[in-house]
């Protein structure tokens, strides 16, 4: 191979053949242009937040948020409805998701557990409109509940359960094996292990799961709209009609530009954005603390 030394060095290290110039130049330009793609994400977010704030904030008074006036020009009814419906739905979802997740993580043999996990994943991947249909057919028609608070809340619990189920399962399966073995090896019953050892370790992760499920659920529209009737009053009991913020946006969106109904829709959208953002921040904060704790656990 090549013998003539320094000329070889120069011809290789300073190769200016078209092919080399192209290769190196292409890499350099790709490196400069690809980061610009982040604008595809950043620009819509900024635009969305800016325009929704612009339409919502100037008229968003404390009175608009708190008044439960029945004339559709205040948000109080929808806020109370959202709070009550999601409180109900989350409680149910936590009940089912938590027990289910712990049972899968702690009791089920691996082969059966994988089937259950797959079905939880499939539920998460199911379009929410399908959940709405299920709720309408099962609760509103078959159970005869009609388009009510209870039908909406149970349907929403159905929607949120798999998320909580998965985090509970994950939280308990990722308890460090030595700790688990030490607890069970020293004679603790499974129930004792779950309550005294597993739960304190898994708790923060389960909490993030609950908040995540709530963040996703509170932004959902289709399951609620399909299983409830809009109401101008705050829910009186489980059989009442109910309005939640997302449903309010859907009911009002197509109103002519200048009407107050559209402004109310934007104010509801603004509130939902804030709620979802706060919930996401809570999730991040808890999971940061959780990560630190778990790191401590492994040391």
């Amino acid at each position: 191979m090549a013998a003539d030394l320094s000329s070889t060095a120069n011809s290789i290290l300073f190769d200016r053949s078209a092919r080399t110039v192209w290769r190196i130049g292409f890499d350099r330009w790709i490196g400069r242009l690809l980061p610009l793609l982040f604008l595809v994400a950043i620009f819509p977010i900024l635009s969305l937040v800016y325009y929704i704030s612009e339409k919502a904030v100037p008229t968003l008074t404390w009175n608009v948020i708190t008044s439960t006036s029945p004339y559709g020009d205040h948000l109080g009814v929808a806020i109370v409805g959202t709070f009550e419906l999601y409180l109900f739905a989350t409680s149910l979802a936590v009940l089912f998701g938590l027990f289910g997740g712990v049972a899968v993580a702690e009791f089920l043999p691996e082969s059966a557990a994988n089937w259950v996990r797959t079905s939880a994943n499939l539920l998460v991947g199911t379009p929410s409109v399908i959940l709405g249909y299920m709720g309408y057919i099962t609760f509103c028609l078959y159970f005869g509940w009609g388009l009510t608070f209870e039908a909406g809340a149970v349907t929403m619990a159905f929607f949120m359960t798999p998320y909580i189920f998965r985090t509970a399962d994950l939280a308990f399966t990722s308890v460090p094996a030595p700790i688990r073995e030490a607890a069970l090896g020293s004679g603790a019953r499974p129930s004792q292990y779950i309550l005294k050892v597993g739960a304190p370790i898994a708790f923060p992760q389960i909490l993030t799961g609950i908040f995540l499920a709530l963040a996703i659920g509170v932004g959902e529209t289709a399951p609620i709209v399909l299983t409830t009737t809009a109401s101008v009053l705050v829910p009186q009991n489980l059989h009442s009609p109910v309005t939640v913020l997302t449903a309010l946006i859907w009911e009002n969106y197509a109103q002519a530009p200048s009407t107050g109904l559209q402004t109310i829709a934007f104010q509801a959208a603004f509130l939902i954005l804030v709620i979802v953002l706060v919930l996401n921040v809570v999730v991040r904060v808890i999971s940061t603390i959780y990560r630190k704790r778990l790191e401590g656990l492994y040391q």
Binding site: A41, I45, T246, I249, A269
Partner: peptide
């Protein structure tokens, strides 16, 4: 920022897109 796109409720996307 990209992850944030997933957190925006679809009805909020909808009203922003429509109006």
């Amino acid at each position: 920022f990209v992850d944030l796109l997933a957190g925006i409720p679809s009805v909020v996307y909808g009203i922003w897109a429509f109006i």
